[in-house]
Design a protein around this nucleic acid. Structure first.
Ligand code: NAD
Ligand code: NAD
Lengths: 256, 256
DNA sequence: AGGCGCTTGTGAAGACGTGCACAAATCGCG
DNA sequence: CGCGATTTGTGCACGTCTTCACAAGCGCCT
């Protein structure tokens, strides 16, 4: 694992932007801000304060300001942020100015739902191909796209510049599919199969695992239950939560 | 820190042995370990070293040991961990010893896929009810369960002790559904709708947002592209940043 | 019994992320 | 034109997470 630290990189002078290297935590929040901004834009707002935007995105306002400052932001003191401009900035940084092509592999139960999901199109992506290994599924048309055989992947990749591969096959097939995706040049993979993927350096994998999310919630349920179950005699005040946990991905008790 | 009592071993059902409060990052990894352990158990392994398990779960071995040490784990130096015992321990801590009832609200495109997903059952959960607001969907049978109207939620909650609510409705309806879930006593929610939910203190919300995942991947694609394409002559000359990023939830380059 | 190799558990150090609090900047208005 | 109200951008301190490195413990083999 090569680790390079690059402190300065202050070259934010140009009108057309250089890519700052953002903290990963910031990158993970930018999409949230973007969604909130789109909502605000639709509602007719032209500017928004960090307070307002952070509330809409469900984060702390100082954190939001720091995040935006990382991308050399364009706020105006005393006023706030220009909604349209900020949308443009964030979309640029996230690389959404080009509509990225997504290949979806595994058109089963989940794959069907994904194929029919309009959130792809509305958030900067385009399903370029549906692929499956099951011959009886090949040829099926979903949402205007015909399912092709996964072995056609090289052909598909030749036709389109695939940016992202989505794996929605059973876990047993996921590694093989990942290898096939990597072989045709895909360097970003979203994996729905509950398994760890091995990929070469330079390839990014993110996973979505429903059961993991549920189990994390289960832990907190268990914990909450074990707190309430404390004997009343001498029980410590449990209304004042001991800490409250805020996880990377957990929102709790967002006030109204 | 190690005057640990056996939480796990024999007869632990009665007195709840005050759960250690684990670092949130650890909690998020326990399900991964659990899955890896089940795979190992199925493959016939009786013990596993931290090295082996961490490889199977895709994490650093020191991290794994520290995680397990937090739950007062019982590894044996020179040998490793007892697979069956560790499974038991983790399942206990995660609160999976009781099969938790899940209510799924919104039986549309995605909801159908979730309803048909066997990963619920195999990982400690049980879909207790399918709910929807659309009268034409009510009554439909999916996987042995009949879709009920979302307004029946109080009745359902009275029949079953609901542990977790899953929201798979459009974003516009999500807040209202969340309120309904909270009203019947649900304190853990998994939200698939792309929006922020407001819930009272003590209620946990986790979200799964496909578009966010894709946009994070897009960022890395963009960044990788801007690194490889180093224009020599003017243009949008970008600062040449060396690579290497590792994210909270991103695995990259797991060697073979 | 004793030594040896292997593996756990953890102290310590450093990287990273968060949130407060406030100076600097900007606008609107008298 | 200056002043007060407002809001950004950020220095700083603190908490959390990660990783290294190694002593302590365990089992096996001789
Ligand atoms: N259904 C859900 O709600 C859900 C939720 C979370 C995670 N998942 C995970 O998503 C994955 C898919 O779930 P599903 O319910 O859609 O399963 P499924 O069995 O309905 O669909 C899997 C599809 O993948 C195809 N496939 C199998 N091997 C393939 C290969 N080598 N190349 C290409 N395609 C191949 C199959 O033909 C099938 O169409 C599983 O790993 C599951 O654990 C599903
Ligand atoms: N389909 C996907 O692959 C996918 C992926 C990621 C996220 N999502 C999100 O998941 C959600 C559902 O997506 P979908 O594609 O299944 O949409 P969908 O329109 O197919 O299904 C939504 C269902 O929710 C029901 N519903 C609406 N209002 C309700 C209410 N107040 N109470 C109960 N039920 C109500 C509708 O009757 C419908 O059956 C959306 O928010 C979507 O953005 C979907």
């Amino acid at each position: 694992m090569s680790q390079h630290r690059h402190p300065g990189a202050p070259g934010r002078a140009g009108a057309v932007p250089a890519l700052p290297d953002l903290p990963e935590a910031t990158v993970a929040r930018l999409p949230e801000y973007l969604r909130a901004l789109h909502n605000l834009a639709d509602a007719g707002h032209e500017t928004v304060s960090s307070e307002g935007l952070s509330a809409a995105a469900g984060v702390n306002s100082a954190k939001l300001r720091k995040d935006l400052s990382h991308l050399g932001s364009y706020g105006t003191r005393g006023v706030g942020y220009d909604v349209a401009l900020l949308i443009e900035q964030i979309e640029y940084v996230l690389g959404l100015t080009q509509r990225r092509a997504v290949a979806l592999v595994g058109v089963g139960n989940l794959g069907h739902a994904l194929a029919g999901y309009d959130g792809f199109a509305s958030r900067g992506f385009r399903i370029a191909a549906l692929l499956d290994a099951d011959p009886s599924r090949v040829g099926e048309e979903i949402n205007g796209l015909v399912v092709r055989h996964v072995d056609d992947l090289p052909t598909v990749a030749a036709e389109e510049s695939l940016a992202i591969g989505v794996i929605a096959t059973p876990a047993a097939a996921a590694q093989q599919v990942a290898d096939q995706l990597v072989a045709v040049g895909v360097t970003s993979i979203l994996n729905f199969a509950p398994c760890v993927l091995s990929v070469p350096e330079g390839v990014d994998v993110r996973k979505v695992d429903l059961a993991i999310e549920l189990q994390i919630l289960s832990f907190h349920e268990h914990r909450k239950a074990s707190l309430t179950a404390l004997p009343a005699t001498g029980g410590t005040a449990l209304t004042a939560l001991p800490g409250g946990f805020a996880a990377t991905d957990t929102q709790e008790a967002i006030g109204t």
